[in-house]
Nucleic acid binder design. Sequence first.
DNA 1: CGCTGGGTCCTTTTT
DNA 2: GGACCCAGCG
Length: 923
Amino acid sequence: MTTYTEAQAEAISCLDEPLQIIACAGSGKTQVISQRIAAILGLPGVDPRNVVAFTFTEKAAAELKERVLSIVEREHGQLNGLAEMYIGTMHSYALGLLQRLVPDTFKYSVLTDITAQLLVDRYSRKSGLTSCPTTAVQGTLRRYRNSKLYLQVASVLREDQIDYSRVPAGVLESFEKYAELLEQNAAFDYTEIIRRAVHYLEGDPYEDDDFGRVHEHVAKDIRYVVVDEYQDVNPLQERLVRGLVRFGANLCVVGDDDQTIYQWRGSQVSNIVTFARRYADVRQVRLDDNFRSSIGVVELGRSVAERIPANARLPKSMVAAGHQKWERGDLVALTMDDPLAEATWIVDRIVELRGVAFQDRPDSGPRGLSWSDCAVLFRSVTNDSGPLVEELRQRGIPFIVKGLNRLFDSPEIQAVVGVFRFMVSEIDDGALRALWDEAQLIPATGDWTRAIRVLEVGRDFAATRRHAVYNIQRLYLDFLEALDVREENLPGAPTRAELVFYQLGKFSQVISDYEQIYFTTEPAAKYEGFAKWLQFQAPDYYADADADVGYATPDAVTIATVHQAKGLQWPAVFLPAMRRNRFPARVMGGVSLRHVIPDDALDDPARYRGTVEDETRLLYVAVTRAQKYLYVTFAPIQSNQQQRNRSEFFDHIAAQQWVSTAASPVAGAKLAPHPLHETPQVTLSFSELKYLFECSYQFKLRFLYGFNAPIHEALGYGKGLHDALAEVHKRALEGDIATKDAAGALVDRHMHAPFAYPALKEQLRASGIKALERYFDTHGKDITKTEFSEKQIQVHVAPGITVDGRIDLIRRLDTGEVAIVDFKSTERAQAEDVTRDQLHVYAVGYQELTGRSADVIEVLNLDENGKTEREPINDPLLVAVRDRIRDAGEALRTNNLPRLRVWDKHACGSCDLVALCRERPTA
DNA sequence: CGCTGGGTCCTTTTT
DNA sequence: GGACCCAGCG
């Protein structure tokens, strides 16, 4: 049982006033939030669905959720309905809200940075890109060159507080076009997800049904809102929060203004600083106690934070409250001759630290430090980590670099890119072969001639083959198959094969991204464009392709940027490359936001450019990552005129009394190195679980390596039907019973098949209507018996293992029994027991949700000749399914994901990726 | 010591 | 495209 400080306890128990928790680094913030949420759940009359908690990343969400669940299990035992508590990002919350309550947006898909940029470039005129004026000499923005900037403009215009009268009319006209293009494609970019949700939250409930439905939900269901990392909220997100609490829900925001490090992405420090002035009767609780670090680190951190002007900060004073002892020599600031010497010194020190006794918690015994207890934090990993990486590699010390390896720099990906340069006759057979030899990708059994044949047939664009059938992804997989490229066939050690497959899988994602936008382009032009894009655009987008395969965390030195280190901690932290113009970083030149949106249209334009204050906050984050040892080093780069001098930050640190300016050997006893073993969180979505049950290797190919199936032209059909039925049942719950004649309108609203050619579109529409009419004919009378539609479920199987899913429909039968219904729109051959297991997971989820058990499971086939299968829920099977999920989660954690032992008619026969796995049986 | 002009160099990343 | 560095000038 955790004991809390007075301040922590105050924060936990303050449940009925607006609360601002100001949490210094290392103050046990997550634990406090978890405990507070658990306390809310324990209040009489509070349902889990009354709680909404926002985090900034999915990872942080998984962690918070896990902590809340384990506290709840410990303190309240079984609690029903936990699946309906929301803990996650604002984006997924907003999307969920729209897709639950606003039927018109059910069909919308989400564009990533990359696909949004592809869209803007493909429709460079229609998107407004090339007509967008800029004060830079070029006059307007340009295709490819400025599309990223254009997307930033489009985001800022929606996310920030804008004085529109000061934005040039041409810019606004361009933006209108962009918004229209998104609309036409039934797509949201990340900003639009939030903006649209805000639109409904702020709307007048009497204006239309959708506003009314959102209004009612918020007023009735939402009673507690928690916002973590509040310092990183941008003005639009702040409106989302406002919208959620406008009917009196309790708001609690948690954050540390000193750790605002994403200003250039729109977060606004003033938001957290003025919170208490903007909301009435705010209680502020300061968590000043730092339990993480020694007094030396804490005091150093404090001195850094105090460099930030007081009017831009919330008053606070971090104090050391933990058990870590400070000893002279723990904190060191050193100057080296050059980056090479710096790297050598760091690696020497890492080696020296290995085995040094360290105590993680006041009540735990000492252990010997290991590689993974050391982190080297750079302002710019890409530019500065080279010498260190080289040194570590030479000395055989394991390390993980985040963000250094650019996917397209690897010889493997260059070989794959070569395939597409060959497709457009940029290189010949011999040159391609050389690339593949160079990358060592050709298996001993590989038949090069056969593989080339596949490409030659594929690039005969004049052949009257419908290009949609023979698409890029298909070609890629066919080529790999023809060449016999499989994990066990690749030259080299199995670990190398795993890494290569990870890269090949990433490339599959690259294809998917491109084809999602260019699917319907004529083949010749499509391949031409793809080859160009691969060479000129894509390399900049797909930066990170490092060895992050799977969930297992290796014992390795972490090399990361300060940004990536936020929220993490290590016993020993190195802060090298403390050079002027690097850290604090120099402001960048080039055509940027201010050439499109004038400064006076923005509240705080400087934040997009970067200020010394922002960099100081970054330094604060960096320093406070260390628990005990902190080594800050400077080494000039003689060859670079701008990077020869010490950073003012270095001088600040070196001048502090806790910091030594000469290194002494690490004191203390040596033990055997013993890395901290972290249990990785595993959250499986329902569809992931389905694949995991069916074949764990298929799961690995899809979700760990990233291989995607070729896009099917009819994609969207099943989802459209599904969404149409969801609307029918949701309306039924409101007492509005739809009938057969609504089928056409329903299909028109929900069916979005962006990859279908016109005739197929028509055909899909027609068969969609038929399917709905059939549904009304056979099940129309049951529509009134709807209990729930699209019910969120969650199964917490074991610590760290959770399954999330959604049940299509729950209804009462004539017999009074409760049926869980799953709609199927295609008769995808599926092994019988997988379906049954899958449905039993729903049954388990239903049980956790309601505390009751359902009676039967129904699979309702929407296709022609489709029949309903019904089976009673089998209690022993429920137990068995839980065990299976737990085993599956364990298998994931240990990366034990083998293929099926023998060819399975159903699983392998229907697997899109079987070519990467095994030989097809000869008929 | 202050100014000028030519040469040099160019970050961070979640949803 | 523009901030910074530095040599050279008055």
